[in-house]
């Protein structure tokens, strides 16, 4: 896993659509410009969801998406930066 620095983290592991983006939205609103949000999700659909989400949220930029293992589960990690 590469080390990307982030300011706020949302743990959406175990949650299904649409919760990862709903929770991400709440945290994203409180970010300052330039800050990065990291979202952990176990929902495989979240990979496409975050790509779609940044198309709709004009001040959001998808920095990186990674797949990793945590506690024996596949976790999809999304880094979103506030422009």
């Amino acid at each position: 896993m590469t080390q990307i620095t982030y300011d706020v983290e949302v743990d959406a592991r175990g949650l299904q659509c649409p919760m990862p983006i709903v929770n991400a939205r709440k945290a994203f609103q409180n970010l300052q410009s330039g800050q990065v949000l990291r979202v952990l999700a176990t929902d495989p659909g979240s990979v496409n969801d975050f790509q779609g989400w940044v198309k709709m949220v004009s001040d959001a930029e998808l920095v990186s998406q990674e797949t990793t293992e945590m506690d024996g589960k596949t976790v999809y990690v999304h880094y979103v930066r506030k422009k």
Partner: peptide, 12 residues
């Protein structure tokens, strides 16, 4: 409601 929440969470 899923679509509505998703859209609202995307700033719509």
């Amino acid at each position: 409601f899923v679509i509505a929440s998703g859209a609202a969470a995307s700033g719509m």
